[in-house]
């Protein structure tokens, strides 16, 4: 069963309902004891990186998640939740992340290499460029559009963690993963067919892991 981590940063309702519609069991909790019973974790997040890490540190959930991931429990971060999986960010000041995945979170500069300016936030439907079609997360997902809304993106040199990306002046990591840690920069619960397929794939992976 998927445990959705409730640490006060993010809208848990839509993602919960999406799992419900797909027919998977989940629960929402902020309690370590309860969350430790989950066979897979989901880390949502809307807001700033530094605030999110501060809360996770204060509540002890950071140490808990570190421990669970080290034990091999699957973790899926969504939106800011995905960015937290990386090393660091300078959103509202410097903050360290979980460092499960290599890379830094940066603000879109708003100007491309040729000096042409573009809009920030990256907001709207953008096409997935699938780098690892064999990843279980990409099952039944084509080069479809998904819904992004973010001003910061992950800059990583490790091509190995890129499952899919999107092009927005920069190469924007859209689906990432390594070992038992995964993330989507976009909101799967707001991304129509492709988004729901990715949620379903993760839920199935958690079930298989459980068996």
């Amino acid at each position: 069963m998927i445990g959705i981590i409730d640490y006060g940063m993010g809208n848990l309702y839509s993602v919960s309902k999406a799992l419900e519609r797909l027919g998977y069991d989940y629960f929402v909790s902020e309690e370590e004891e309860e969350l430790s019973k989950a066979t897979g974790l989901l880390l949502p997040g809307v807001g700033s990186f530094r605030d999110a890490m501060a809360i996770l540190n204060e509540t002890g959930l950071k140490a808990f998640i570190d421990k669970e991931v080290a034990r091999g429990k699957p973790l899926l971060g969504i939106c800011l939740g995905m960015q937290l999986l990386f090393e660091e960010s300078n959103e509202n000041g410097f903050a360290e992340g979980f460092s499960f995945l290599p890379g830094k979170v940066k603000k879109f500069p708003g100007q491309d290499s040729s000096g042409t300016s573009y809009k920030v936030p990256h907001m709207g439907w953008n096409k997935l460029d699938i780098k690892k079609p064999d990843s279980f997360l990409m099952n039944d997902v084509g080069n479809e559009h998904v819904y992004f809304v973010h001003s910061y993106y992950v800059d990583t040199e490790d091509r190995d963690v890129l499952i899919a990306s999107a092009d927005y002046a920069e190469e924007v990591p859209a689906v990432v993963g390594k070992g038992n840690v995964f993330g989507t920069q976009f909101h799967p619960e707001k991304s129509s067919h492709a988004g729901l397929a990715i949620l379903r794939n993760y839920a199935q992976y958690v079930e298989r892991n459980d068996a």
């Binding site: 309702y13 839509s14 309902k17 999406a18 419900e20 519609r21 819904y147 809304v149 909101h187 619960e189 707001k190 991304s191 129509s192 067919h193 988004g195 729901l196």
Partner: peptide, 11 residues
């Protein structure tokens, strides 16, 4: 709002 969010996967 709650019903729409529960049934639709678009923003």
């Amino acid at each position: 709002v709650r019903q729409v969010a529960a049934e639709l996967a678009i923003p």
